[in-house]
């Protein structure tokens, strides 16, 4: 067999193999295993029959804006850091002071802040969607979507979680309060101003209506490696019933690129 005929034969064989594997997949559901804590056939993946029960949940309709200048939030609180985390923040503060108050960034301004900061943004509203087994938080900011699983699943072991901007959130309803528990937030993200945390960072949020149109999020953060004590921040949001989230495509309107020295530019 000459080289050309061999190549034709090889191409034909691989085409057949591809076609066969595609036929096996077409229309066939794949079957990821249920997450830890959820029995096969139950959980958020099997919503039918559980929609009516959602009507018992509190009314969080509309969109929600962080209340700027809310006295309940007080002056921007900062976590008590320890050890190398405290030293790193001191170094950050010194550098910002030396740089005329301007913070250097090591990533694009089109990169979202992740938790917990993304729940504290004054410029971009939120909406909370209830479906069986989960609460979905749509954030106008960076068009981020966050899932809080309420179907009884557990956190996977930390070493099996990919560190991410939102980590892994599980929640339950304590009366009319949504209690969300989050681990797995990337340790490359900030907490407070210039603060950082370890991969042991743990966030608990208690979210509830405190009056007809005010939602309160009491955030409690702990980190055995980075924090001296639990760090608490309370954020309140005001409602706009018929407001709607607006599209956020940062790369289409990125007027604040970061240069190679970490300086934010202004176009």
């Amino acid at each position: 067999m000459n080289a050309k005929r061999a190549l034709v034969a090889l191409t034909a064989a691989s085409s057949i193999a591809l076609a066969a594997s595609a036929a096996a997949q077409l229309g066939t559901p794949t079957s990821s295993p249920p997450p830890p804590g959820v029995t096969q056939g139950e959980g958020a993946a099997f919503p039918k029959g559980d929609y009516a029960a959602l009507d018992a949940l509190p009314d969080w309709g509309g969109i929600w804006f962080v209340m700027r200048g809310d006295p309940a939030m007080g002056p921007s609180p900062q976590p008590e850091l320890k050890g190398e985390y405290a030293q790193r923040r001191e170094a950050w503060r010194a550098e910002v002071s030396a740089n005329d108050g301007v913070e250097r960034r090591d990533r694009s301004n089109c990169s979202p802040p992740g938790l917990p900061r993304i729940m504290q943004l004054a410029q971009y509203p939120y909406e909370f969607l209830f479906t069986p087994g989960r609460v979905t938080v749509n954030q106008e900011a960076w068009m981020q979507t966050r899932t809080i699983w309420t179907d009884g699943r557990e956190h996977p072991p930390l070493d099996e979680l990919d560190p991410t901007f939102h980590g892994h959130s599980i929640g339950h309803w304590d009366g009319d309060t949504l209690v969300a528990d989050t681990i797995g937030i990337s340790d490359e993200l900030e907490v407070g101003e210039g603060g950082s945390h370890s991969d042991q960072f743990h966030l608990v949020e208690r979210i509830r209506l405190v009056d007809e149109d005010t939602l309160e999020n009491r955030m409690t953060m702990t980190d055995p490696l980075a924090f001296e004590e639990p760090f608490e921040v309370t954020v309140r949001y005001r409602r706009d019933r018929y407001g709607a989230l607006i599209e956020f495509q940062c790369s289409e309107n990125d007027r604040n690129p970061v240069n190679e020295d970490g300086e934010t530019q202004y176009l």
Binding site: G101, Q120, L121, Q123
Partner: peptide
């Protein structure tokens, strides 16, 4: 040092 954690 910086603005509140409020903006992009």
């Amino acid at each position: 040092l910086t603005a509140p954690a409020a903006a992009h």
